[in-house]
């Protein structure tokens, strides 16, 4: 599905981002250049504080690069946001406790002015997609953490954005739940053909999910390595024991170690 001939969906050229803090400037990103093509699944991995979240937020126009150029769908990030180019999934599900699961999922649809009938139809569809078919009428506290996170993914999918940005969406979940959600996320990606940017701390998760792994290093946040994954799109969980998988994982680990050598 990856199409080399079409222009990149997300393109960063020499991005730098400096936060002005009370203790002086913090250089969160330095000279980041990266192109993400349509339908790619790109993971960002790196030690804490290397700017993964900052980069994802910059794509979402929640932060503003202080140098370089960043385009999303050929537009500026702000314009892309206005054209509803992406859904964003935060580390915490952040569901509104006063809304049911269905109510939470239709929140973006209400804001974007979808009709009532269309909202109901879309909510039903995306809840099915994340396997929460029967849970629309439940309140968030009635669901487990994993189910809440799935609901927040459904919320990001509800309005047909073709980019999905996820910042450690499964970081707070245990490994078993995480494995299942990883599998489901791959399935969902296959079915919808979305472009996904995914931040993680876990090497196996990054290797299992991605078509491209971006290894980052801290202070200032730079790209240490970009690995194109040779793994096929169809990935059963036991692919994680295959030699190819272990080889990529090894390369990611090397990249992380090299990044640390600068400290």
């Amino acid at each position: 599905m990856k199409d080399m001939s079409s222009p990149p969906v997300i393109e960063a050229k020499g991005i730098g981002l400096i936060f002005q803090t009370d203790d002086g400037p913090v250089e969160a990103l330095k000279d980041i250049s990266l192109a993400i093509g349509r339908g790619e699944f790109v993971s960002f991995i790196g030690p804490s504080g290397c700017g993964k979240t900052t980069f994802l937020r910059a794509i979402a126009a929640l932060e503003h690069p202080t140098s370089g150029t960043l385009t999303v769908n050929g537009m500026s990030p702000e314009e892309a946001r206005r054209s509803r180019a992406y859904g964003y999934v935060f580390q915490a599900a952040g569901l509104y406790p006063w809304r049911t699961i269905a109510g939470n999922v239709q929140l973006p649809l209400e804001i974007m002015g979808f009709s009532r009938a269309e909202r109901a139809e879309r909510v039903r569809k995306v809840l099915d997609l994340v396997d929460l078919g029967g849970f629309g009428k439940k309140f968030p506290w009635q669901l487990s953490g994993g189910m809440q996170q799935r609901a927040s993914i459904a919320r990001a999918l509800a309005f047909d954005a073709d980019i999905l940005l996820m910042d450690e969406p499964f970081g707070a979940l245990d490994e078993i739940v995480r494995d299942r959600l990883n599998e489901e996320l791959l399935k969902l990606w296959n079915e919808t053909g979305k472009t996904i940017g995914f931040v993680t701390h876990s090497i196996p998760e990054a290797v299992y999910l991605s078509t491209k792994i971006v290894v980052m290093s801290p202070r200032p946040g730079r790209i240490a390595d970009v690995i194109e994954s040779p793994l096929p799109r169809e990935r059963p969980l036991d692919i994680r024991d295959s030699p190819e998988f272990l080889e990529i994982a090894h390369r990611v680990r090397e990249g992380l170690r090299a990044g640390h050598a600068y400290d």
Binding site: R81, R84, Y88, F90, Y96, L107, I111
Partner: peptide
């Protein structure tokens, strides 16, 4: 985070207040 979420939907100030 909750405010940023609404920002990603490009919600207005009124929408943010109301919802």
């Amino acid at each position: 985070m909750q405010l940023d979420l609404l920002k990603t939907y490009n919600a207005s100030r009124f929408g943010t207040f109301w919802r």
